[in-house]
Write a protein that binds this DNA or RNA. Structure first.
Lengths: 222, 222
DNA sequence: CGTTCAATTGAGGAGAGTCAATGAAGGTGG
DNA sequence: CCACCTTCATTGACTCTCCTCAATTGAACG
């Protein structure tokens, strides 16, 4: 059918119950509502929550990464966001989750079982607005940029989230990147190769990208 | 350059000051913070606010429609959302607008100059979360659906916002639709024509679509 | 009735997708 | 420790959708 491809995905078999819960440490400064909470450990590809599930908590990544995604009935998948350490996700509207959330690799996630209230609404709102801006900016990338521009934007975004280190770690697979950028795994791979041959990046290994010519990458996504 | 096309756009010349302000009527139930506010009238393509501007208000569409968009340096445009009567927009993060907002046609917009506070945070948060879900769902459409599926999804969305009337009014141009769906104006037009020849819709005029076979349209976007 | 701008339609090409084969990496068990 | 297997990534050949360029039609307005 052509139709923007995307690897077919069945939602991962539920692992719920496998996760071990740990006693809570003090929450990081970025998000610390006044409530009891705990850290859950997830293994790679384990589901955090499913689309349609009742939503009754917010989540903050402690370590590792999480992908939020949605599926079409034929298995096409769109990852709407990755979340890394410190970031908050799990917002819902009308009391239900509209997306799936899975750990990309092994991950620790702090769970806040208490919804937005008088005491924490400002933090919740700020986090939600940040997510909104990110989603809308991603729309521009997916809707109007070509493959090279998308990959460049992705690399720069990942770099920024890792304190602008030249060595960028990619916690996710090529398939994940493709499903995030609205491309196929092959196109992502070819684009990486082209960047490499142009001397824009070096690939230490599949999951490690050294950004050689940051300026050139920035110029690409205008 | 190919690159997902999109008609080149310069932000419309600022019309600020042209708008006439009217005394406020009671706000509709959907959003009514306890504060003084007023209704501003905008003519077609008039700017409501610009990217980068300091944000100090929320807006609710009274009549007409508004487009939110972002530009690439070469003029490619991505409309991230349309807003019609009753809907709230103008959220910001870090105190600045990250998008342009323009009236699609003549529009009336209620302006709430007071930011989120203890009294209205719930409404603000709900509106923001609704926008977030919409944006993320739109990512799936743009990232993973083909032209026909995108247009079908768009028509159904517009229909739903107009109380599911079979006669759907499109306040925006083909160019706007293209820039919203990540397509060119030609592809949008061709897709409409194909729908028409298949008997899925009838086009009373350019801006009026009669949905004949809703089921078929729904089946398209799975 | 001419002007103007938006929308439609056509012809052709380019970018990304599909299908398929090869290569590299990691885990398991003999 | 190595052979085997599985999974992921890369690369190539070919196809197809949608974009580009261009001409035509249609609608609105003075």
């Amino acid at each position: 059918m052509f139709a923007q491809a995307a690897t077919a995905h069945a939602p991962t078999a539920p692992f719920r119950g496998h996760q071990r819960l740990a006693e809570a440490r003090p929450a990081p400064a970025s998000f610390s509502p006044d409530q009891p909470h705990q850290i859950a450990f997830f293994e790679a590809n384990e589901e955090v929550y499913a689309q349609g599930e009742r939503a009754n908590a917010l989540y903050q990544v402690e370590f590792g990464a999480v992908r939020l995604y949605r599926l079409l009935s034929d298995g096409r998948r769109q990852i709407s966001a990755f979340h890394v350490a410190g970031e908050v996700f799990g917002f819902e509207a009308d009391g239900h989750h509209h997306f799936f959330a899975e750990a990309v690799g092994p991950a620790g996630i702090r769970v806040f079982r208490q919804p937005a209230n008088e005491g924490n609404w400002r933090q919740t709102l700020d986090a939600a607005l940040g997510a909104l801006v990110r989603a809308q900016e991603h729309l521009l990338v997916i809707g109007r940029q070509n493959a090279a521009e998308r990959v460049a934007a992705f690399l720069l975004d990942m770099m920024e989230r890792q304190d602008n280190a030249r060595e960028v770690q990619l916690p996710m697979s090529r398939t994940d990147i493709g499903d995030y950028l609205g491309l196929t795994i092959e196109t992502v791979s070819r684009t990486f190769s082209k960047f490499k041959s142009k001397g824009l990046v070096r690939l230490a290994n599949t999951r490690t990208v050294e950004v050689v010519d940051e300026a050139a990458l920035r110029a690409m996504c205008a």
